[in-house]
Amino acid sequence: MLRRRIVPCLDVRRGRLVKGIRFRDLRDRGDPVDAAARYAEAGADEIVWLNISAGEEAWAELLRAVERAARRVDVPLCVGGGVDGLERARDLLLAGADKVSVNTAALDRPGLVTELAAHLGSQCVVVAVDAARANGGWEAHAAGGGRPTGRDAVAWSREAVERGAGELLVTSIDADGGRAGYDLDLIAAVSSAVDVPVVASGGAGGPADMAAALSAGASAALAASIFHDGQATVADVKQEAAACGLPVRL
């Protein structure tokens, strides 16, 4: 039976692991490759790296870190943040990423999703959808949540899949960082609107929240701070999910 996935997310700046609150107060937390390897050993089903630095030099540093991760980490690695076109997506895959996620560039130019899927295959194209509640629904935001686009997030999710996205990484901007649970309505709305796997993100406060996101229809649940702070382990989350009757890899 296909297992639901538990996915730690690491913020990477200039090839280094950082941690902070909503992109502020960032502190160096060491080598993201070490962290990814630790989580893989602890049972993570996949690792997501989110590159939060801009510029060519930072990109080169990211690629070098991905290369090292590919040699050491034996679970899938999805990398996003700064993918502005086919060339950078291919850079990441050749460096050793299994999937790339794209966000702002796809909102600015939806044809990019079509292009990535045609050249790289849908199974490695993830569209990250950052959504905030608006007018009784959700609005898609670009630029790390900083720029509202006026697009309905569920409609955008559907379009991204029609264009070839093989997976959606759906983050609630409202819930992100609050540790009060995912926006389950958002997860359920997107999961029922598309026929590709949905990764739920934003708001995990503990294992029960992650199990709830999976129960709401997500194929995978992503969390950052609860893992980094040691508040919960991947095993804790899997036990909780299994207790809720969800299939997980133990």
Partner: peptide
Amino acid sequence: TVPHMGWNDVSPSGAGPLGDALPAV
């Protein structure tokens, strides 16, 4: 839901060349 993405059981149909590596997830 397609692609088939994630961890799943690999169940041997009988004695096979991959021997004791299967079953596996």
